[in-house]
């Protein structure tokens, strides 16, 4: 969650100045259209800001303006007569979002960029924004790769007789909106430490079913603890009530459920959860006492943390930065 929030903030702080083109080719109101045409061809641009002799921005001229002028036979006109002087600009310090909205609202293809004093400092096209965002996404992907690389080396880099990672998550009762948050984070953690995707998937499904059970049934919600070491994942799911009255039926009887109908309408509580968990787990242990609570233990073997030197090991290649 933390990482995602940081990412979001970075995106908000993504500024026009970071993505715009700085080397702007400008023309003046006195530039003949024939000269503009030549400039556009030479620099492969489709428009240019117009500045006066004092360097103030006075308009923008685009290839559409040029084509229209030529169609109308105005071969000898000057930029000043055909430019658009209804100036829509963005500021260097504006968020890229703001610029994107301006593109959408106005339908223009390029926006001159000015600094705090109104001086022209660059030009921005939609292409600049796309390129900038792509660059950002690439950087994010790389960050995730680095996270994975680091996490996958924990079990080799940290030396002890028995290293394990302990992750604890609280689950609130009846909180369907956030149901699955804990399992989602467990899934990401396992992926980062380099566990095999098939095993990660099994662990995620088991954990998610158990998490939904806490949300649906537990009086006060509960806690999920995930303990990961180099050979296995141990999930412990605990609550303090109400407890399961008929353990045998809950475990063995397909379709046996105590879930109220309004929750079943949401797609859960069909009497499959515990059976699903057992299918995903290598070992499962369920203890429950009515009025006391329930503890579910799930063990899933990981067998994935061999050192990269082991031949043909998929993790080794995944770990490379």
């Amino acid at each position: 969650m933390g990482a995602q929030e940081i990412t979001r903030v970075q995106k908000l702080e993504f500024r026009v100045g970071q993505v715009m083109t700085r080397n702007v080719i400008t023309v003046t109101p006195g530039t003949p259209l024939s000269e503009l045409q030549e400039l556009m061809r030479k620099h492969r641009i489709s428009g240019a800001p117009v500045v006066n002799d004092d360097g103030d921005l006075v308009g923008v001229i685009s290839i559409e303006d040029l084509v229209r002028a030529l169609e109308e036979g105005a071969f000898n006109a000057f930029v000043g007569e055909r430019m658009s002087s209804n100036l829509i600009t963005v500021r260097e310090a504006d968020a890229v979002d703001t610029a994107a909205q301006k593109f959408q609202q106005t339908g223009v293809g390029r926006l001159p960029v000015v600094n705090a004093w109104g001086e022209l400092v660059g030009i921005l096209t939609k292409g600049d924004i796309t390129r900038g965002l792509l660059h950002e996404v690439e950087a994010e992907t790389q960050d995730e790769e680095i996270c994975r690389y680091r996490a996958s080396h924990i079990f080799r880099d940290v030396e002890s007789d028995d290293t394990s990672l302990l992750l604890r998550y609280k689950v609130a009762p009846r909180d369907f909106t956030h149901g699955g948050n804990a399992s989602s984070r467990i899934k990401r953690a396992l992926t980062r430490v380099g566990a095999d995707p098939q095993i990660v998937r099994r662990a995620a499904i088991a954990s998610y079913e158990a998490e939904m059970n806490l949300i649906i049934h537990a009086d006060h919600g509960g806690q999920i603890t995930a303990e990961v070491d180099s050979s296995e994942l141990k999930l412990t799911v605990e609550d303090d009530g109400p407890g399961i009255a008929d353990l045998r039926r809950a475990l063995e009887e397909p379709g046996y459920t105590t879930t109220p109908p309004e929750i079943r309408q949401m797609g859960f509580g069909a009497g499959m959860g515990l059976k699903n968990i057992r299918k995903c787990a290598d070992q499962m242990r369920l203890e429950s006492q009515v009025g006391q609570g329930t503890t579910l233990g799930i063990t899933i073997r990981l067998h994935v943390f061999e050192p990269p030197s082991a031949s043909g090991n998929g993790n080794a290649q995944r770990g490379k930065p």
Binding site: F176, T177, G179, G180, S183, S184, K187, P197, Q198, R201, A204, I205, Y208, E209, M212, M266, G267, F268, M272, K275, N276, K279
Partner: peptide, 26 residues
Amino acid sequence: LAHAKPHTTLIITEITNPQVVRTAEM
């Protein structure tokens, strides 16, 4: 959760709550 095949399964449903997205993620 019990039967979907990974990676290439499209879930087709009328369920519109967040849990359907969580399930797809898992």
